[in-house]
Design a protein around this nucleic acid. Structure first.
Lengths: 146, 146
DNA sequence: CTCGGTGCAAATGCTTTGCAATGTC
DNA sequence: GACATTGCAAAGCATTTGCACCGAG
């Protein structure tokens, strides 16, 4: 089960880096696991608050950093003034088409792309940890709307 | 000459969209044309201020938006809390390797990448206006530093 | 019992906005 | 002249920080 795996991984990550295993951190992770698709920090905080959680905004931000560092979530910047996050565990790498008109985000996977990225890194002697390709434009729906 | 081309393009863009052609907007463009590499809004504003310009921060931001809309500059979000810009006119499309350790940004061009992006857009019936691929990791220098 | 983590509120940093004055069309 | 654009300062928003208290190791 992915949820258990995520919690297990997070615990291991915390311990091996001498971070403390606190209930607040796992409350945040749990809330994320229940979410689908993209979300931002404040959205997550408000959702938790609605669910009676006492976890503060500061802790949500702190935990999002940790979860991103250990690869349980991905952080994106889609040309906005805030970060967006998404579960990364149990999902293959994918990239995004972003509609500038309606804000829709379409995900796609392309193996050739990953191969080329690997080549580019090798050519430049660069050790990649993660990557994001964002294509901005107009989605199918918005093109036919006029 | 690229500078003249940029100014000409900007003027055309403003007129065809019923924006006014103001000296402030061209002061900003001129300051950008003198810059090399990446820069951010405040850096540009301060540079202009040093050069006795009276142009305000608000106008700098406003103008950066317009210049990006008409393709004279590119805007990037390299996982930071602010935008970075770069001249786009007279330069081929390129992408970035970003070192998370020293902050260095390495540019690269790869034609195959662009071809695949085009294919992806076609498959999804998506009309692309621009794109950015960012690969995060550790640069050559930082790998050997230890 | 130590010191990292937490909540809270205040601070920060980038960007946008409100408004009166200015200058383009 | 009309009204978009400007400068300025204040506001806005996402995120971080300072500090006293709490609780994991």
């Amino acid at each position: 089960m992915i949820e258990e795996l995520a919690k297990e991984n997070f615990k291991k990550y915390l311990k091996s880096n001498d971070y403390r295993v606190t209930p607040e951190r796992f409350e945040v992770l749990e809330a994320i696991l229940q979410k689908d698709g993209h979300f931002d920090a404040d959205e997550l905080f408000l959702k938790m608050k609605t669910n009676e959680s006492k976890v503060s905004r500061a802790t949500v931000y702190n935990t999002l950093d940790l979860l991103q560092e250990c690869g349980i979530i991905s952080r994106y910047r889609f040309g906005e003034n805030h970060s967006r996050y998404e579960k990364a565990i149990g999902r293959p790498h994918h990239d995004h088409l972003i509609c500038l008109e309606c804000g829709d985000i379409i995900e796609f996977v392309n193996q050739k792309l990953l191969k080329i990225q690997k080549d580019v890194c090798k050519e430049n002697n660069f050790k990649s940890t993660n990557s994001t390709l964002q294509i901005f434009g107009k989605c199918n729906k918005c093109q036919t709307k006029n």
